[in-house]
Design a protein around this nucleic acid. Structure first.
Lengths: 219, 219
DNA sequence: AATTTTTTTTAGATTTGTCTAAATTAAATT
DNA sequence: AATTTAATTTAGACAAATCTAAAAAAAATT
């Protein structure tokens, strides 16, 4: 089966919203896609007919197994292209989302296979998010933010929860990227800010906001 | 201005047909795009409104300066992507057309700029066709086929007039590719076949059909 | 529990790009 | 020059994806 760009965008957005809430609502999807609730209802009937979603009117909806598989294929293409744009073409990672959003709809399976191989089978995209494999299998990475980790531990940055230029600017300022190793010195109770020490740099304090958006794993 | 995928396809096809005949007819364009003449008429009214074509009903049509510029932008993107697919991803050149056809509609100018640089500013695509520059300037390559060149001359293959798998198969058999240097031994009047000698190979005879589809420049 | 507010769906319209069938114009033939 | 044939355009319909406004259902509030 082949899906239209519009159908693919709906499927992908439902997938992303499901990460937060198991069942997705018409309004939230309309908001995500910057469209109107009436349009969402229309498309959901279509996706139901194609047997990609479980949907009863007024009851919300979710992707079924078939829908999830399609979604993971789209996510795979999106993240491989993001990796390409950053690591081969030299884009900053806050600039690649919209372009990858277009590239992800190019439908050749052979293209994605060869792109994957050309990129050396990367496991995560430039934001640290895992890339699903051909079968839709994706590494589950425990998302622990700097705000949740005990002091004195040394950790490695694995992903960021915000892909805005503003976030990138701050990360650059602190010399933090995916893979950066750092030690948590202490947490400040007053505003949740965190003192960290990046290797070969003097200790510094990041805001609670930042801490919540920097995800790490034990290094 | 931003154009739809459909508009871009019409513009590109008009451009290609104009290479052969200055003025394009409704039927020929419908045939090229595998659509119906009525659809072509509809779209041409639209392109005329957008001031991209000169078109009077029943009189045929052609791209004006603005339309040609758009067309060359699309050709540029198409050929850069073809170069990428062959030289970076390892596709055979008979497999890349359809994929490039999709990729060419991805609209980011920054993407194409960076792709061009990543590919090291190639001058021709994998079939030897020249790649227009950012301003729509394109090298004019004199298209002389092997059939038209005098015997005893040594030439370099610059492009091929047919991008089918069958053509590729034959070229591979003869060890001929873009850039291959070869000497024309003699022409046979009976059927137009040509005896050639590729460097480090024994002389061989190619059909008149082949000879007409292999373009060369003096090496 | 009744009422109000919010969410969702339906009904009907709109835009883009396509189509078929009929009408019109141009080109070719007699 | 008249007629036939071919090419092109118009008229009207259709599918996909969207929208607005109104109706219906669910959730929240009193």
């Amino acid at each position: 089966m082949n899906y239209s760009v519009s159908e693919e965008n709906y499927i992908k957005s439902i997938y992303h919203l499901q990460q937060q809430t198991d069942t997705v609502t018409t309004n939230s999807l309309a908001n995500e896609l910057r469209t109107k609730p009436a349009s969402v209802t229309d498309m959901l009937k279509k996706l139901r007919t194609k047997r990609l979603v479980d949907y009863e009117k007024y009851r919300g909806f979710k992707l079924n197994a078939a829908g999830s598989k399609i979604a993971l294929g789209i996510v795979r293409r999106h993240r491989l292209w993001e990796f390409f744009l950053v690591n081969k073409l030299g884009f900053e990672w806050d600039k690649v989302h919209d372009i990858a959003e277009e590239l992800e709809h190019v439908s050749s399976a052979e293209l994605i296979k060869k792109l994957d191989s050309f990129l050396n089978f990367p496991q995560t995209d430039p934001h640290g998010d895992p890339i699903p494999d051909t079968n839709g299998k994706m590494a589950v990475i425990k998302q622990l933010s700097l705000a949740e980790i005990d002091a004195k531990k040394t950790v490695v940055v694995s992903s960021v929860g915000n892909q805005s230029p503003e976030m990138l600017e701050m990360l650059k300022h602190y010399h933090i990227g995916i893979g950066t190793s750092l030690k948590i010195n202490r947490h400040f109770a007053f505003d949740g800010s965190v003192e960290i020490k990046v290797t070969q740099q003097s200790a510094c304090i990041i805001s609670g906001q930042m801490a919540k958006n920097i995800f790490v794993h034990h290094g």
